[in-house]
Amino acid sequence: MKRRGPGLFMAVLLVLALAFLGLTALTALQKAEIARLERGIQSLKEELVPIRFMVLERDKGVVKARVRMYDLAGNEVDLLEMTWPGTELSFDFSVVPASGRYLAFPRRIFTDRLAPSSGTNLFPRYDRAGFPGIFEGAEFGRLGRTRLSGLFQALKEDREPSGSFGSVVHDIARIAAFEPGVVYKVVVRPKGGIEILED
């Protein structure tokens, strides 16, 4: 009678080895999925800060503030210190969809007592020979830079690219007023939302 022991033993070993390899492969796939989800969550929470500001004074119906604009590398692009009539300070952005995310171009500053059309135009303050200076500091390539310049030109000429919209963030005197002396940052989210956070 033939001995079956070694053959059976080898078969058990093979099954165990295959099961272990299968489980290891499945674990590797799961780890890749976890890494992908974690990257996705990080990118959803990513924030760009094109503007930081501080209210210097709010008195007798005027508000004085210092506003700094930054590029993508965090370098200061422009510093603006002005007084506007009113109490609530509004930052107006043009938000444009591009490559699966949204780009925000600071457009103007106005207040509750100043019509948007009479607000301070911010476009010239970061116009660097046609390129929007707030998008310096990242590698877009020549084509990307040309497209950004084209978008910027359209916005300057009051043409709204498809899918774009305006987004204004401001304080509300009764509920959440910007405190003088406190630095706030305007945060742009990848999904196009803009919010103001204490820095």
Binding site: G166, D171, A176, E195
Partner: peptide, 12 residues
């Protein structure tokens, strides 16, 4: 609460 602020959207 992360932030409380005023926000407006704008459209021509």
């Amino acid at each position: 609460v992360r932030s409380v602020f005023g926000a407006a959207v704008r459209r021509r």
